[in-house]
Amino acid sequence: MARNRQPPTSLRRKVATRRPRKTVAIFCEGQRTEPEYLDALRREPDVRDAAAVDIRIEHIGGGAVPLTLVRMAVEARKRSIAEEGEIDEFWCVYDVEWPTHHPGLAQAADLAARNGINLAVSNPCFELWLALHFRDHGGFLDNAEARRLRRAHDGQADKGLDGAVYMPRRHDAARRAGALERFHEQNGSRCPDDNPSSGMHRLIAAVLPSAS
């Protein structure tokens, strides 16, 4: 009597399946603070491993204005597409500045929108984003006030930061910045009239979706 035979078990080793790494290029204008924050974010285990994100920071020194920054990102994206490069997303991180705005803010936003460049704009400046790591803030700020607010929380100088102080709080900052964005949307306020605000929460969500 013939026995029912089970199909033979394959002895071939199963190839482990991993999510493909997502490569993000970030162009930022700051001399120290923004690059140091982004570098600390890049080194976080949940960003580096769980989210499988490769962050490449393009630090543009010399006080590059937003329009210059976006133009550089647009050219880099065009080169990446032409060369079938591996960069998936391009971001620009810059400030609005108060009381005197950066020139070309509207042109920079329009150029970015037409060329697939994502923006993380802080209004008035990046220090507002840093302050949101510690508490909510809904009142208008100029640059000097934002820097004082940041110093009141971390006690550090204007330039540079300790990533270990900020990284554990980045989810709280993203939540607070998202609430500010919704507030301005409900009131029809757009850049540069959306003070205070920071689009950094969208960048955080892009490199770590669980933060959104």
Rank of each mutant, 00 (worst) to 15 (best):
V15M: 14
A113C: 12
W129Y: 12
A73I: 03
E89A: 13
R77I: 00
P20F: 05
N115L: 05
A25D: 02
I55H: 01
L105Y: 09
V121M: 13
N118C: 14
E84F: 06
G116H: 02
C92R: 01
A106G: 12
T23A: 08
D88C: 02
V70K: 00
E127I: 04
E83V: 08
M72I: 10
D54G: 10
C28D: 04
A52R: 13
T23L: 09
K78W: 02
A64P: 06
L130K: 00
L67Y: 10
F27E: 01
Y94E: 04
K22A: 06
Y37V: 02
L38C: 09
A120M: 07
A108H: 01
R71T: 03
R79W: 04
I87K: 00
S122G: 08
R77T: 00
Q107D: 15
P99T: 15
P35R: 05
R114I: 10
D46P: 09
A64D: 05
E97G: 10
G30R: 01
A112Y: 02
V96S: 04
E36K: 07
L38Q: 03
P20L: 08
H59P: 14
W91C: 03
T68E: 15
E97V: 11
G116L: 08
V121W: 04
D95P: 12
W98G: 06
V93L: 05
I26R: 01
F126N: 06
L128A: 13
A112T: 05
T33Y: 01
V74L: 04
A106Q: 15
W91Y: 10
W91G: 01
D49M: 11
P20Y: 08
G30P: 00
R43S: 13
D46Y: 12
L111I: 11
E58I: 02
W91Q: 06
C92H: 03
P124V: 13
S122E: 08
E86G: 10
V65P: 05
T33H: 00
C125V: 05
Y94P: 07
I26G: 00
L130T: 03
R32L: 15
E58G: 00
E97S: 11
P45E: 04
S122V: 10
A25M: 00
E36V: 08
P35T: 07
A51R: 08
R19I: 15
F90Q: 03
P45A: 03
A131P: 05
I26C: 02
V47H: 04
Q107H: 11
I55L: 07
A40F: 07
C28W: 00
I60G: 05
E97K: 11
V53E: 04
A51G: 10
R77M: 03
P35V: 03
N115Y: 08
L41T: 08
M72E: 13
P66H: 04
S80L: 07
R21S: 11
I55S: 05
W98F: 15
E44M: 14
Q31R: 12
L105T: 11
A112F: 00
P99G: 13
L119P: 03
A109Q: 15
D49Y: 14
A51L: 06
R19C: 10
K14Q: 13
V47A: 03
A108K: 03
W98A: 15
